[in-house]
Computed example of a mutant assay.
Amino acid sequence: MQATDTFTDVIQAHLQSRAETDSLFAETLKKANKNIKDCITYILNTVKSSGRNGFDDEEVFGMAIHYYDEDDIKAGRDINCKVVVNHSIATMDKVLADRPQEKVETKKVMKKQPLIVNQSSLF
């Protein structure tokens, strides 16, 4: 795996935050056959197979949660790629703290305005 430490840290922070508020997921996160390295590998393989170049935070976090929820999911092979993270862990803490209000507002904005991303391929 060649994902940046920042990408791994953001995913890990989100998973830990979710585990703090969801006791069922906290147990899921402790599964012996799961780890953050394979979680990141799974995300990268899922992104690559989609053929898309950009993902919303919630989509990526959803992939991480899906990896931990499913017992028989395979991470796939290691991928050497560049991952762009649009915020730091400190920013992530603020986003998680403000999530309920921002989540609703973001959905309203996204429905009204198309998202245009000029970004080169991650793969």
Results as ranks from 00 to 15, higher is better:
residue 4 T to Q: 04
residue 4 T to W: 03
residue 4 T to K: 04
residue 5 D to I: 07
residue 6 T to R: 13
residue 7 F to E: 07
residue 7 F to H: 06
residue 9 D to C: 02
residue 10 V to N: 14
residue 10 V to I: 15
residue 11 I to P: 00
residue 11 I to E: 07
residue 15 L to C: 08
residue 15 L to H: 11
residue 15 L to N: 06
residue 16 Q to L: 14
residue 17 S to Q: 07
residue 18 R to F: 14
residue 19 A to T: 07
residue 20 E to M: 13
residue 20 E to V: 08
residue 20 E to W: 09
residue 21 T to V: 14
residue 22 D to A: 11
residue 22 D to C: 04
residue 22 D to W: 11
residue 26 A to Q: 11
residue 27 E to W: 06
residue 28 T to A: 14
residue 28 T to W: 10
residue 29 L to Q: 13
residue 29 L to Y: 15
residue 30 K to P: 08
residue 31 K to W: 03
residue 31 K to D: 12
residue 31 K to L: 12
residue 31 K to T: 10
residue 34 K to S: 05
residue 35 N to S: 08
residue 35 N to Y: 09
residue 36 I to R: 03
residue 37 K to T: 12
residue 38 D to R: 14
residue 38 D to M: 15
residue 41 T to G: 04
residue 42 Y to H: 07
residue 43 I to T: 04
residue 44 L to C: 15
residue 44 L to V: 13
residue 44 L to W: 09
residue 44 L to A: 13
residue 46 T to F: 02
residue 47 V to G: 08
residue 48 K to C: 08
residue 49 S to N: 15
residue 49 S to R: 15
residue 51 G to W: 11
residue 53 N to K: 12
residue 55 F to W: 12
residue 57 D to N: 13
residue 59 E to N: 06
residue 60 V to P: 00
residue 61 F to W: 10
residue 61 F to E: 07
residue 61 F to Y: 12
residue 62 G to W: 00
residue 62 G to K: 04
residue 62 G to S: 07
residue 62 G to C: 01
residue 63 M to Q: 09
residue 63 M to Y: 15
residue 64 A to L: 06
residue 65 I to K: 09
residue 66 H to Q: 13
residue 67 Y to V: 02
residue 67 Y to P: 04
residue 68 Y to F: 15
residue 69 D to G: 05
residue 69 D to C: 08
residue 69 D to A: 10
residue 69 D to V: 05
residue 70 E to Q: 12
residue 72 D to Q: 13
residue 72 D to V: 06
residue 72 D to F: 10
residue 73 I to H: 05
residue 74 K to I: 10
residue 75 A to Q: 03
residue 75 A to V: 00
residue 75 A to P: 05
residue 76 G to C: 01
residue 76 G to S: 05
residue 76 G to N: 02
residue 76 G to V: 04
residue 76 G to E: 03
residue 77 R to Y: 06
residue 78 D to E: 09
residue 78 D to K: 14
residue 79 I to D: 05
residue 79 I to V: 14
residue 80 N to F: 07
residue 81 C to P: 01
residue 82 K to F: 04
residue 84 V to D: 02
residue 84 V to S: 01
residue 84 V to L: 03
residue 86 N to A: 00
residue 87 H to L: 07
residue 88 S to A: 02
residue 88 S to G: 05
residue 88 S to Q: 02
residue 90 A to C: 00
residue 90 A to D: 06
residue 92 M to R: 03
residue 92 M to E: 07
residue 92 M to I: 05
residue 93 D to L: 02
residue 93 D to V: 03
residue 93 D to I: 00
residue 93 D to E: 03
residue 95 V to Q: 08
residue 95 V to C: 02
residue 97 A to L: 04
residue 97 A to W: 02
residue 98 D to K: 06
residue 98 D to T: 04
residue 99 R to M: 04
residue 101 Q to H: 09
residue 101 Q to A: 12
residue 102 E to W: 01
residue 105 E to N: 03
residue 108 K to V: 08
residue 108 K to G: 00
residue 109 V to P: 01
residue 110 M to W: 01
residue 110 M to C: 00
residue 113 Q to A: 05
residue 115 L to Q: 08
residue 116 I to K: 05
residue 117 V to H: 04
residue 117 V to T: 01
residue 120 S to Y: 00
residue 121 S to L: 12
residue 122 L to K: 07
residue 123 F to H: 03
